[in-house]
């Protein structure tokens, strides 16, 4: 059986792991290399590592960290943040990333998804979509949630898959960092609309939230940050809980 995946996410700024609420109010959450090793040892199925540095120095630090983490973990490793060209992707894969997550650059330049899939294969192209609920549906935001676009989230995701994205990382901005639960309806709608796996992100607060998004939300994987970083939920206990609830997980 194919297991549902549990994915800790490390948002990294200038070499440190940080976490905010609704994309603002960042707090320090520790050393990314230590966290990555610890999650890998605890049974995380994959790691996502996002660069939210605002400066070039921060970005260089990030590329160094990607290499350092890749040398220490033996689970799949997705990196993203600030990727804007096929060259950026190649450089990250060369230092040991397995997949790259593309967000704003794909909105500005959808051909980047095609180029990435052609050069490196769809399996390493993750389209990250930050969506916010508006009066007329779910709207795509870019630049870390700072800029609204005209795109409808479901329509954009369908297009992204047609262009070659091999996986979708779907974040509900409304739920992010609130610990009030994942956005189930949107996740299910997206999962039923495309043929590639969906990673649900934003809002994890309890173990029940994970079960809900993996079963009712039909997500293939669930991603979270703060509940793991601050020790509120341990990965081994979460997986035992999910197994008890009848969710296929790797233990």
């Amino acid at each position: 059986m194919l297991a549902k995946r549990i994915i800790p996410c490390l948002d990294v700024k200038d070499g440190r792991t940080v976490k905010g609420t609704n994309f603002v109010g960042l707090r320090d959450a520790g050393d990314p290399v230590e966290l990555a090793e610890s999650y890998s040892a605890q049974g995380a199925d994959e790691l996502v590592f996002l660069d939210i540095s605002a400066t070039n120095d921060g970005r260089k630090t990030f590329a160094g960290l990607v290499g350092e983490i890749a040398r220490k973990i033996n689970i799949p490793f997705t990196v993203g943040g600030g990727i804007s060209s096929a060259g950026d992707i190649g450089a990250l894969l060369d230092v040991g990333a397995d997949k790259v997550s593309i967000n704003s650059a794909a909105v500005r330049q959808p051909a980047l998804i095609e180029a990435a899939a052609r050069n490196f294969g769809s399996q390493c192209v993750v389209l990250a979509v930050d969506a916010k609920r508006t009066s007329d549906g779910w709207r795509v935001y870019m630049n870390g949630g700072r800029i609204a676009t005209e795109l409808d989230a479901v329509a954009w995701i369908k297009r992204g898959v047609e262009l070659g994205a091999g996986e979708i990382l779907l974040t509900s901005m409304n739920a992010d960092g609130t610990r009030d639960g994942f956005e189930l309806e949107l996740t299910r709608e997206v999962s039923e609309s495309v043929s590639v796996p969906i990673i649900a992100s934003g809002g994890a607060g309890s173990m029940d939230d994970f079960a809900d998004v993996l079963v009712r939300g039909k997500a293939d994987a669930a991603l979270a940050a703060s509940v793991f970083h601050y020790g509120q939920i341990g990965i081994p206990e979460l997986k035992s809980f999910l197994k008890m609830r009848g969710v296929e997980v790797r233990i």
């Binding site: 059986m1 297991a3 043929s195 994987a221």
Partner: peptide
Amino acid sequence: PGGGLKVPHMGWNT
């Protein structure tokens, strides 16, 4: 073949 299955087959399988 796809159908009801997500393709690529991605993740941990027994």
